[in-house]
Amino acid sequence: MGVKERLEKGLVKVPGGTILIAKMADLMAWARKSSMWSLTFGLSCCAIEMMATAASRYDLDRFGMFFRATPRQADVMIVAGWVSVKMAPFIKRLYEQMPEPKYVIAMGGCASAGGPYRDSITIVKGVDQFVPVDVYVYGCPPRPENLILGILKLQERIQREHEAERNGLPKPVREPIIITETGATG
């Protein structure tokens, strides 16, 4: 079997040494999904659970994820908290400032659909009204385990997109992933 055929299946280890050969696309996919830097975008209560997910017990650093304050260095924006009319233009501008490829995780009921504030006149019913959302993690606030599941599902999506790109297939449709409160995935 030639090197090219073996590369189609994944990594090729050169015998005897410490050299691995891989396709560029595979390396990029692995790097992108394993090192997602998120924009510190905690707005309210869900931000505290996001901080707890990043802290000692539910360590997010083991997934390669840590928080960058500037959108120019971030891949994923976790919108954690309710979005008010006063804040919405800033969210939109920050999303536009993030370089491609970028993803959005809507954390909590408020960012997903407005939460309990259905008759509030200043709350936008979901951040997907003005930015495209990839993963919805429901909960009020969602447990750290659910947020981590959302992040893992997003990593799977990044992997699938790159596999499609590598095999010359059309990009899979970016349907939103929904993580419900019990951890069931839609």
């Binding site: 009319v85 006149i121 200043t122 936008v124 019913k125």
Partner: peptide
């Protein structure tokens, strides 16, 4: 002034603008 008892607002249709 939203807290007045006679304040009535309708959604404006634009998510970036309130009612």
């Amino acid at each position: 002034f939203p807290f007045r008892k006679d304040y009535v607002a309708v959604p404006s249709g634009d998510p970036l603008r309130g009612p």
